[in-house]
């Protein structure tokens, strides 16, 4: 990939896809989308990035280890279920706070956990394969 234009285009596209992924993640609770789609989208973006730029670049860009990312996601999903335990309700009971018309609750944290877990998983395979 010598061409600067192509490189820039890829960067731009990957960036766009990532932004879109975050959008898909956040709107997931109300519109089509959610953690899975967002993670797959971001994964595709990184795959594109890895194929054009190589695995090193991806590693540098995401900073944390994919495996740790996946585990963090899993941890978030588990943690989102814990507050209920402390209030004496069953595990994974949603706890919501309503602020100015926005509702924030543990299921959203759960969804983010899903996002991170799936993205981390895809990334770790992708990078390992690329580096092999």
């Amino acid at each position: 990939m010598q061409s600067v234009i192509l490189k820039t285009a890829t960067h731009l596209m990957v960036g766009l896809m990532l932004v879109f992924a975050v959008y898909v993640l956040l709107r997931g609770h109300h519109e089509p989308g959610g953690g899975f789609s967002a993670a797959l989208l971001a994964g595709t973006a990184f795959a594109l990035f890895a194929i054009t730029e190589g695995a090193d670049q991806v590693r540098r860009a995401i900073r944390i280890r994919p495996a740790a990312m996946a585990m963090t996601g899993l941890a978030m999903a588990v943690v989102s279920g814990l507050p209920a335990l402390f209030t004496g309700r069953p595990f994974l009971t949603g706890i919501w706070r309503h602020l100015n018309g926005f509702s924030v609750g543990t299921p959203l944290l759960f969804d983010m956990g899903v996002f991170l877990a799936v993205l981390g998983a895809i990334l770790s395979i992708l990078l390992a394969l690329e580096e092999n």
């Binding site: 997931g28 609770h29 279920g81 994974l92 949603g94 299921p107 969804d111």
Partner: peptide, 20 residues
Amino acid sequence: AHGRNIVNVILVDFRSLDTL
């Protein structure tokens, strides 16, 4: 469950244990 996308609500709330 405070969500409008029923599929997503099922995934992250009603049946979140599956998703876990």
